[in-house]
C-alpha cells in the first residue's frame, strides 16, 4: 500500500520535475524580449476591452452540481460492483443485484426528473420561468 502510494507520488513529482526541467533548460536558449504590445491580452488583434474575468453563465454551475451528484454515485457504486460476481458465486446474488439495480433505478429516476424539469437543456428560454409570486415550481408542462 505504501509502495503503491509512493509510486503515484514519484510519478507525479517526476512529471512536475520534467516539465520544470524543460522550462528551466529552455530558458537558456529561448529569447526573452517582452514588450507591452506583445504582452497584451490576445483578442484577435483588437485592443482588449475590459478584463477577461467576466462572470460566466450559471448553467456551468448547475452542470457542476449535476456532475457532483452523479460522480458521488459512481464512487459508491463501483466498490459494490466489484464484488457482485463473488456474491453471485456465493449464492447471495439476488441481494447484490437488487441492491445495485435499486441504486441505478434511483439514478435513472433522478435523470428522468432532471430531464423533465429541463435541467439538461443547454438552451433555455426565459419564458419558461414562472411569473414572480406564483409557487416555486417552474417549467410546468404547459
Amino acid at each position: 500500500m505504501r509502495f503503491d502510494a509512493a509510486v503515484v507520488a514519484v510519478f507525479l513529482l517526476t512529471a512536475l520535475g520534467i516539465v520544470g526541467a524543460a522550462m528551466a533548460l529552455g530558458r537558456l536558449v529561448r529569447p526573452n524580449r517582452p514588450d507591452p504590445i506583445k504582452n497584451q491580452t490576445y483578442e484577435c488583434g483588437e485592443r482588449p476591452i475590459g478584463s477577461g474575468w467576466f462572470s460566466f453563465n450559471p448553467r456551468f454551475y448547475q452542470l457542476a452540481l449535476l456532475f457532483l451528484i452523479f460522480d458521488v454515485e459512481i464512487a459508491l457504486t463501483w466498490p459494490v460492483a466489484a464484488v457482485v460476481r463473488s456474491w453471485v458465486a456465493g449464492g447471495r446474488g439476488v441481494v447484490a443485484v437488487v441492491e445495485i439495480l435499486l441504486f441505478l433505478a434511483v439514478l435513472v429516476a433522478a435523470l428522468a426528473w432532471l430531464w423533465g424539469r429541463g435541467d439538461l437543456d443547454w438552451i433555455r428560454e426565459l419564458g419558461t420561468l414562472p411569473p414572480p409570486g406564483k409557487d416555486g415550481e417552474r417549467g410546468d408542462d404547459a
Binding site: A15, G20, G26, R27, R30, N32, K38, N39, Q40, T41
Partner: peptide, 21 residues
C-alpha cells in the same frame, strides 16, 4: 523549445505558469 515564453501582462502569473505542470 526555442520559442519565447510569453506571459500576458494581465494574466494571473502563478496560475498561468503552473497550469501546464
Amino acid at each position: 523549445f526555442l520559442k519565447e515564453d510569453i506571459v500576458p501582462a494581465a494574466a494571473d502569473r502563478p496560475l498561468f505558469l503552473f497550469a501546464p505542470y
